[in-house]
């Protein structure tokens, strides 16, 4: 598959995949795990994220995979999309469609991904553009909670235990998921456009600000005990906002989140099909359709609340394998081969 990315397109894809599905669900498990010092934990996690990006940038040229590793990544991304799909479907069933058969909702979601992935590569690459205004609107409406924020919730800090810090680091990985696309797509970025240095730092700041803002607003708005009962604290926060023109602001954002997740699924599917075509370039249309049939059928086995929660826990460990461990091994092996 031959395509070119501009620097902005590359960072936008990364940002959308990293924030896509997990953004609404990230703060609650993270703050619950990290305790009162969650915001400090995230600052340190943010620094680790930047180091990871620097590692990717330094070594992406050595990340060359064979068919076996390719299959591992395809299975990982299939699992990831299934989890995202199950999660959004479960959320939609709770908030919007208790009566609608879940296979129909999933089929509709997957149809969009199929249409996008049967289109040109440029279409998938640029699809995230439609999220830009929605992200701004989302951040603006979160500001409405400003008057209800309790700033003393930040203090006293330094009270989290070592175990809480460790758990916090682990849960912070949710915000890292998707960063592995860096090593796959980096070589497609226009060689005239610089990534190293300031542009990469700017992306790190953007990513960090976005997630840190969500962590901060959740800590400042909720009491620790109240947060334990809320799987999507940001949606509940929006539900509590009173504006004159609508009664339920949260519903709009639920569907914005749905769009966000769909686009994430489109991009991850694109990445999986891209890796597949690195080694098996025939029957592109057929393979795209088969992939999407999997996406319709497999989430149906994981639609209960218990499953969704378990899968969300598993994802973190899988990310450590596919975002850190495998790239490290592949890069080291290729460097050794070159020597």
């Amino acid at each position: 598959m031959n395509f070119n990315l501009s620097r902005n397109q590359f960072f936008l894809i990364l940002f959308v995949v990293q924030s896509g599905s997990s953004f609404f669900s990230f703060p609650s498990p993270f703050v619950n795990a990290a305790g009162r010092d969650a915001w400090l934990v995230f600052i340190v996690a943010g620094a680790l994220h930047y180091m990871l990006l620097l590692f990717y940038e330094r070594n992406y040229k050595n990340f060359k995979i064979g068919p076996f590793v390719g299959w591992l990544y395809k299975i990982y991304w299939l699992f990831l999309t299934i989890v995202y799909m199950a999660y959004i479907d479960y959320t939609l069933a709770v908030w919007g469609f208790p009566e609608t058969p879940q296979i129909i909702v999933i089929a509709v979601l997957v149809t969009v991904s199929l249409y996008a992935n049967l289109s040109r590569a440029e279409t998938v690459i640029n699809l995230s553009v439609m999220l830009i205004p929605l992200i701004f609107v989302f951040v603006i409406f979160l500001q409405f909670a400003w008057k209800d924020l309790v700033w003393t919730n930040l203090f006293p800090f330094g009270e989290s235990t070592g175990a809480e810090w460790a758990k916090g680091f682990l849960k912070a990985q949710i915000a890292f998921i998707g960063s592995e696309l860096y090593v796959f797509f980096r070589k497609h970025v226009d060689s005239k456009q610089k990534i190293k240095g300031r542009p990469l730092f700017f992306y790190q700041i953007l990513w960090f600000t976005f997630f840190f803002f969500s962590v901060l607003i959740v800590i400042l708005y909720y009491t620790p005990r109240g947060l334990e009962r809320l799987p999507e604290p940001l949606l509940f926060l929006l539900k509590a906002q009173e504006v004159t023109f609508v009664e339920r602001l949260d519903l709009f954002f639920l569907y914005i989140w749905t769009v966000w997740t769909i686009i994430t699924i489109v991009i991850i599917s694109f990445a999986a099909l891209y890796v597949h075509r690195l080694h098996f370039n025939e029957h592109q249309k057929r393979d795209t359709i088969i992939w999407h049939i999997f996406l319709v059928l497999l989430p149906l086995f994981f639609l209960s609340k218990g499953f969704v929660e378990k899968l969300n826990d598993v994802i973190i460990y899988l990310y450590l394998v596919f975002g850190l461990f495998i790239p490290l091994i592949v890069i080291l092996m290729n460097r050794r081969k070159q020597k």
Binding site: F97, V105, V112, Y115, S119, M130, Y255, I262
Partner: peptide, 20 residues
């Protein structure tokens, strides 16, 4: 058929169509 969800899906499809 799907309320706001349907509109959201339709919007993405429209956007993809226009990009194509």
């Amino acid at each position: 058929l799907f309320g706001f969800f349907g509109i959201a899906i339709g919007t993405i499809i429209l956007f993809i169509h226009l990009m194509n």
